[in-house]
Computed example of a mutant assay.
Amino acid sequence: MNGNDSSVQRPRTVPSVRIDGRRLRSERTKQLIIEAYLALAYEKSPQVPTAAEIAQRAGYSVRSVFERFPDIHALQVAAADYALVQVAALAPARDHDGDRQTRIKTQIGTRARTCERWLPLWRSLIVNQGDSPELKQRILLSRERAVARLELMYAPELATLSAQERRDVLIVLEALTDVDSWARMREFFGLSFEEACEAWERATDRLLPPTRGEGA
């Protein structure tokens, strides 16, 4: 076959490149809209930002917002999902095989930073969840992840308890280190970040049973 034969059809890649480029730009726009919503949620919490406010902050039109999200509720759900991913990425489990005090300090420090960062969004979700099964499910997932982290970090102590005792301790620990608890310490009682962490550390140490093998 002649290498110069004009009948040879070469694959055309330009259209797919253009499609991919549009898709990437659309995803980037979607991400910027979510980030704009989160920034406004921090400032206006628990009030929900309007579409016009979100569009202005993101640098797009209101039409662009609704081209990517059918309504503000869908944007709230997307923002909650984004926050959950960020929490998981920025707060990996560390020192879960350390001694008692190391594990308590690490767990409390991680939880405190998470609460400090996401408090406004959490408050907005709680206040505005209404009858939304999607937002209720995200709130439940956040609590379940917090309990799972407690189980991992305090496994040596929890292993010494009966099933009922273990459940009770986890319930109390989750309530103690809840976002609302953090907010009360920081806002109502006026504790500094370090003071609030120390209060949580002392209370957690008292709530946990002795650590097997450490003579605690």
Rank of each mutant, 00 (worst) to 15 (best):
N2D: 15
D5C: 00
S7R: 10
S7E: 01
S7G: 01
V8F: 11
Q9K: 15
R10D: 09
R10F: 08
P15N: 08
I19R: 09
G21L: 05
L24K: 04
S26Y: 01
S26I: 02
S26D: 07
T29N: 07
K30Q: 10
K30H: 07
I33L: 14
I33H: 11
Y37F: 15
L40Y: 15
A41G: 15
Y42A: 15
Y42C: 15
K44D: 00
P46H: 00
P49M: 01
P49T: 03
T50K: 01
A51E: 02
A52W: 03
R57T: 05
R57E: 11
G59Y: 03
Y60L: 09
V62S: 09
V62L: 08
S64G: 01
V65D: 01
R68A: 02
R68D: 03
I72M: 14
I72R: 12
I72N: 07
H73C: 06
V77H: 08
A78K: 10
A78P: 06
A79F: 06
A80G: 14
A80D: 07
A83F: 04
V85S: 09
V87N: 08
A89T: 02
L90T: 13
A91V: 04
P92Q: 04
R94G: 14
H96Q: 13
D97P: 09
R100W: 07
R100E: 09
Q101D: 15
Q101V: 13
R103N: 06
T106L: 10
Q107F: 03
Q107N: 03
I108M: 01
R111T: 13
A112P: 10
R113G: 07
T114G: 04
C115E: 12
E116W: 15
E116N: 11
R117N: 12
W118T: 07
P120M: 14
W122T: 03
W122M: 06
S124N: 15
L125K: 04
N128P: 06
Q129A: 13
Q129N: 12
G130P: 02
G130F: 13
E134D: 12
K136V: 05
K136R: 14
R138N: 10
L140A: 12
L141R: 05
E144S: 05
R145N: 08
A146L: 07
V147N: 04
V147E: 11
R149P: 01
M153E: 00
Y154L: 14
A155L: 01
E157D: 05
E157L: 06
A159E: 09
A159C: 08
S162W: 06
A163W: 13
A163T: 13
Q164E: 11
E165R: 11
E165G: 15
R167L: 14
L170I: 06
L170W: 05
L173S: 06
L173A: 09
E174V: 10
D178L: 02
D178G: 12
V179K: 01
W182L: 04
A183C: 08
R184S: 11
M185P: 13
M185F: 14
M185T: 11
E187Y: 04
F188P: 00
F189T: 03
F193I: 12
E194S: 13
E195M: 01
E198I: 00
A199L: 10
E201V: 12
T204S: 08
R206P: 08
R206G: 14
L207I: 09
P209I: 07
P210Q: 11
T211D: 00
G213S: 08
G213L: 07
E214K: 14
G215W: 00
